[in-house]
């Protein structure tokens, strides 16, 4: 079967994790792995794997546009804002893994199909990918929910310089997406980095303020959602089922990574890179079908 070529810009934790995951894909292959830092571990690894690399970042794609049809941008919010118009001009399908929020926000389990006709989709943040589906389940059962809050805790070692330099956009984008997907105005996102050794697994809590919640229905739908997400993020699991006390519904979940690039505690990489691959594969499959 033919493969669709993809490019990766950004050779940090997220970019490199995507590169590793592409090895498993039957329809995607990496045409260019481009960053800026010649010493990055990702670049060294890509070279060993025989993947074309560049330290010219997006210029590598501008100079050789045929190297890919889909581009994963794993740089930073600021850089993606510069890259987005270039990728549009080159007619690439851009999957943005920074919190730049240039294109439509996508959580594959919720709105994948709405995003495929666009030229730029944004994956919000790892915290958003992990928690928004649960928040959405709750707001679907109870549109009158007064307030939703999420807390994402990730191991310091799994937050690279891109995440750290963008912590403000990260927090804001997660909160904005929470409101957009649930339709609930009052929302809050909290991001915590924990440096404990051995590193902690990505841990998320979703709180919702609701009067008289239908807990059976919420629990049932949360379990359904968990099963759907597991299909593309195998390490996604609910730790504490939705429980109700003092007017608040609390759900706790964790994401264990596949350990492709960083170790398994880095579920924060998997939740967003698996989502990116899911979108890319879906897009690629449609393209291949059209080509017959």
């Amino acid at each position: 079967m033919n493969k669709i070529k993809v490019g990766i810009i950004g050779t940090g934790n997220i970019g490199t994790d995507i590169l590793m995951k592409l090895k498993r894909s039957s329809i995607l292959e990496c045409g260019i792995f481009a960053g800026r830092n010649p010493d990055s571990k990702g670049i060294q690894l890509a070279k060993k794997m025989g993947v074309p690399t560049s330290t010219e970042s997006i210029r590598a794609i501008e100079e050789n546009p045929d190297c890919c049809e889909i581009v994963f941008d794993a740089t930073s919010a600021t850089v993606h804002k510069q890259n987005a118009p270039i990728l549009r001009r080159l007619k690439k399908f851009a999957i943005d893994l920074t919190p730049a929020h240039v294109g439509k926000m996508c959580v594959p389990v919720l709105n994948l199909e709405d995003c495929l006709l666009l030229d730029n989709v944004n994956l919000i943040t790892c915290g958003g990918q992990a928690t928004i589906p649960i928040a959405k389940v709750i707001s679907d059962v109870h549109p009158e929910t007064k307030y939703i809050e999420i807390v994402a805790t990730i191991a310091s070692k799994s937050a690279g310089p891109g995440t750290r330099n963008n912590i403000d956009e990260f927090t804001q984008a997660t909160r904005d997406a929470l409101s957009e997907f649930t339709g609930i105005e009052h929302t809050k996102a909290i991001i915590v980095l924990n440096p404990a050794e051995p590193p902690i697994t990505m841990h998320n809590t979703v709180y919702a303020l609701i009067d008289n919640p239908n807990m059976d229905e919420i629990r049932r739908r949360v379990r359904e959602m968990e099963a759907k997400i597991k299909k593309y993020v195998p390490g996604y699991s609910i730790l504490l089922e939705p429980s109700y006390e003092n007017g608040r519904v609390t759900t706790t979940l964790q994401v264990v990574g596949l350990g492709d690039y960083l170790p398994k505690y880095s579920g924060n990489l998997d939740i967003i890179t698996c989502a990116a691959i899911e979108i890319a594969e879906y897009y690629a499959r449609e393209k291949l079908l059209k080509r017959g």
């Binding site: 924990n194 050794e197 902690i200 504490l240």
Partner: peptide
């Protein structure tokens, strides 16, 4: 022992449980 940091209040319930 778990080296909890500020902001990880959600860990308390888990530990207690």
């Amino acid at each position: 022992k778990r080296k909890a940091v500020g902001g990880q209040e959600d860990m308390i319930v888990e530990v207690a449980e």
